[in-house]
Amino acid sequence: MVKVTLTVNNVKYELDVPPLERLIDTLRYRLGFTSVKEGCGRGECGSCIVLVNGNPVHSCLALTSRLDGAEITTLEGLAPAGKMHAIQVAYIEARGVQCGFCTPSFIMVTKALLDRVSDPDDKTIREWHSSVLCRCGSYPYYFEAVKRAAKYLKEGKVYFDEREVREKYHLKVLAR
């Protein structure tokens, strides 16, 4: 067993893991971050992409034992409690979500992209989005989501109130 300290979504975890435990299994089954999906286990589908020290990484190809001291962000940690990140809101508004299995990864890839390029062109968006396979074919909507998110971030809108977003687009507590 290997002792590692990981910071996942700003919380520090001290873990004892087998040397070959994959990061995806640590995140999903040990720590319960189910936004991280396994679609192929071979770095092909991209559904397991998380940010490791800010870089998009296939968590199915990463070994937890090698990541001592790493900062990991999954979709669950994109915004503080009670908030929703502009990228998430952009993905809702771009209306591209279908089965949603690949969506967490597209959002994480978008985060990595927008951290580096604030105003990506179509070619750049396609290049980064080629990291994740979407069989529903939502790609064009996800391209649009990146542009929308870039706009929000440029306007300085990083976080949105989660309850407001929920009520706007989803279930509502009804006034008497």
């Binding site: 991209g46 870089n55 998009p56 296939h58 890839v109 080629s130």
Partner: peptide, 9 residues
């Protein structure tokens, strides 16, 4: 080469 994410690894 691979995909964008693979290029980071």
């Amino acid at each position: 080469f691979g995909t964008m994410a693979l290029r980071f690894e």
